[in-house]
Nucleic acid binder design. Structure first.
Lengths: 154, 154
DNA sequence: CACAATTAGATTGTGTACAATATAGAAAGC
DNA sequence: GCTTTCTATATTGTACACAATCTAATTGTG
């Protein structure tokens, strides 16, 4: 019995069996779903995430936003410059620590929060899930994410 | 009682309550986790996904790969050119339909499959989940993804 | 058969992601 | 105080993603 194909092993490599692809393709589905909603707000999806953090807490250094969103300065620096060009935020060097750039909302940036409430509620209805179902799913995904990030960080 | 802040509505906008962010950040966690494994194979994560489809079925037009992965020619054309430059695939115009570019594995591309088996098994052990747990999660995520894609496609 | 409409890929432009590097400021150790 | 080290951000280069547009090939219709 030479040259027998490892059928069980092949199952492991099937695209539809990969949870990573489920997550990857779901992430794209989210951004495609959000696109028309965010276009009205003049935001891209990653910009929307940054705004979410600022609507919770304002005047924070770039680094804090990066830790919250798992993004580094190479991503955030140009993104924040675009948000500043759109008059939604202001970037100022901290006087206590000149290395830090503090990100603050402009009045327009704060005002955008009210119009942004349409986004999560649209998703809720499109999902055809209950808040509890989505929340349970979210917790599972976050737990897996945190476990992977732990492994990556040794 | 004028100017009362809508506390419940604010909960909807909290970053940690967004399933989209859970998915988005989990997708990044996956690519970071896979990075050292895929570096050994000389692949990026999206390239790995393309190879997964080709290991299942070879000699398919670009369009089929795109439908499988939810990616368009703007993404796949340069990605496939890089895979061809790496000698893992060959791109040839179909003779029956000259609009189509057929993607076929090279012997090296096929051989890479054996070394790729380490990737899903590494994830499985890092996840600290059972195959059944991961599979159940995957199915939930795929169901949500498909529902969102339905809504986007009217 | 002619010709409009459709389809498959490629190209261009904008916007993430992230590794690697650079720089300037702050903190630590002596 | 001085120097080494660390930290926060910026910059550069590579690789996705995707909208919009373009071209060439095929299909559909009269």
């Amino acid at each position: 019995m030479a040259k027998k194909k490892p059928v069980a092993a092949d199952q492991m490599l099937r695209l539809d069996n990969q949870i990573c692809f489920a997550v990857y393709s779901a992430a794209h589905a989210f951004t495609r779903f959000y696109k028309p909603l965010l276009d009205r707000l003049g935001l891209t999806y990653p910009q929307y995430l940054v705004m979410l953090t600022l609507w919770e807490r304002d005047g924070v250094p770039l680094k804090d936003i990066g830790e919250r969103l798992f993004l580094d300065s190479g991503t955030l620096t140009p993104l924040l410059k675009r948000l500043e060009a759109a008059q939604l935020i202001k970037r100022t060097r901290s006087t206590e620590d000149e290395r830090q750039v503090l990100i603050a909302l402009t009045p327009q940036g704060l005002a955008l929060k009210e119009r942004a409430r349409a986004v999560p509620s649209s998703l809720l209805s499109a999902s055809a899930c209950s808040v509890a179902e989505l929340s349970a799913m979210k917790n599972e995904i976050v737990a897996l994410r945190d476990r992977l990030n732990e492994v990556v960080g040794e």
